[in-house]
Amino acid sequence: MRVSVQTDPFDLGAESNAFAAAQTTAGAVVTFTGLVRDNGGTLAAMEIEHYPGMTERAIRAIMDQAVGRWSLEDALVIHRHGRLTAQEPIMMVATAARHRADAFAAAEFLMDYLKSRAPFWKKEIGTDGAEWVAAKAEDEAALTRW
């Protein structure tokens, strides 16, 4: 299981292919990719801050929980920080399991927890000022379904 917290862009196709190719017992691979969304065409950039040290620990702890709950063969989390522009990939999650139900559920679980429990903070730099993205109540509420 790999966690990468990085400023560099990642190649979604290459990462997905390498992840799938490394599997020896899985019958299902699920991937999710988050892109920088431009609400209304006013986004100049998105700056993502994180807490070096805690970020990796928190993501590992979330992965460990996923492994404890589903029958997973492997998992991957890549999350970028620094300055990104609209439509750039921010992060990706991949899960591998013998059957798809485990891979889908674990990927959703990882996404829900990464949103609210991994120490990243997004700031939208707009054409008319900058603003920190506020956490959504629905993102916090999403954790209760697990």
Binding site: Y51, R117, W121, E140
Partner: peptide, 24 residues
């Protein structure tokens, strides 16, 4: 590690304050 505001500080070396996280 995430904690509460009533948590004890005994033995703690690093305290961090931040807004609710917006990862993903």
């Amino acid at each position: 590690e995430l904690a509460n505001f009533d948590a004890p500080l005994a033995g703690v070396r690093e305290v961090a304050f931040f807004p609710p996280m917006t990862g993903g």
